[in-house]
């Protein structure tokens, strides 16, 4: 029995201090309408940045004695633009009370060691654009003797591929029609490349250099069917689409 008893003496938690880089929205004047408009413009510039981003609302730079900001409206406005309010930074009693009502922690007013966040065109939060190459799309029949190469991407054919035609792609090959010619996918060595076709009647299929010729393909039970062809280890797998 004592084995199952948890060790109540061992610590269940640790307290640690940590420095977090966090965005502070510093309100300069009490004008929620302008804030709404200007935030929307920022969101358009850097949509990735405004995606459930944690935020501290800085109210300590507001001119004293002016109109009081409606804190609840401000928090809702921020949420609308994808900014989640973690805390309010203020020294004014009225705001501390309002924050208490909304269950939002209060931080003391800032020192001076903050720098302005630059959200301009090249927002730091935005990850580098992945290299994207559009697929090559062919809509007319590919005849014997023709060779089509999709460099750096997929080849999509929405027409029949005749015997004697050759399809080459660094990526996948899709044929929405009968595939009667040759299809070589992943010719730069991508073993994850695949070949899809509506009717397998190919002279040869190859993925990353592993190939099958018509003589072998004809013995496949899925000959003349809609199939996908992928590579597992060294073996070409032909499965029903």
């Amino acid at each position: 029995m004592s084995q199952a008893e948890p060790d109540t003496q061992a610590p269940a938690f640790q307290l640690k201090g940590s420095m977090l880089a966090i965005t502070v929205l510093e309100l300069v004047r009490n004008d929620l309408d302008s804030l709404d408009r200007q935030l929307a413009a920022k969101v358009e510039q850097a949509p990735d940045f405004f995606n459930n981003t944690p935020l501290v609302l800085g109210l300590d730079k507001l001119p004293e004695g002016g109109l009081e900001v409606d804190l609840q409206a401000l928090v809702e406005l921020c949420r609308k633009h994808g900014l989640l309010t973690l805390a309010v930074r203020t020294g004014q009693a009225a705001y501390i009370q309002a924050a208490g009502h909304l269950d939002i922690p209060v931080l003391p007013p800032s020192g001076a060691r903050e720098r302005k966040l630059d959200l301009g065109g090249k927002a730091p939060a935005k990850p580098a654009e992945p290299q994207y190459r559009p697929s090559r799309v062919i809509t007319t029949p590919i005849r014997g003797g023709q060779q089509i190469y999709a460099q750096g991407g997929d080849l999509i054919v929405i027409a029949p591929v005749s015997p004697g035609a050759e399809l080459l792609a660094d990526g996948n090959i899709h044929v929405y029609g009968p595939l009667r010619g040759r299809a070589l996918a992943g010719i730069k060595g991508d073993t994850n490349a695949r070949i899809f076709c509506q009717q397998l009647a190919a002279e040869m299929v190859s993925i990353a250099g592993h190939y099958k010729v018509a003589e072998d393909l004809r013995r496949e039970p899925l000959w003349a069917e809609a199939v996908k062809i992928g590579l597992t280890g060294d073996v070409l797998n032909i499965t029903r689409l």
């Binding site: 007319t140 005849r143 014997g144 023709q146 015997p163 004697g164």
Partner: peptide, 24 residues
């Protein structure tokens, strides 16, 4: 049939219409 298929490929790619980007 195979030769005709080849010819159709040439008609689509090596004619004046194809080279000028006109209607095939």
């Amino acid at each position: 049939v195979r030769d005709s298929d080849r010819m159709l490929g040439l008609l689509a790619s090596k004619s004046r219409r194809a080279e000028n980007g006109q209607e095939p």
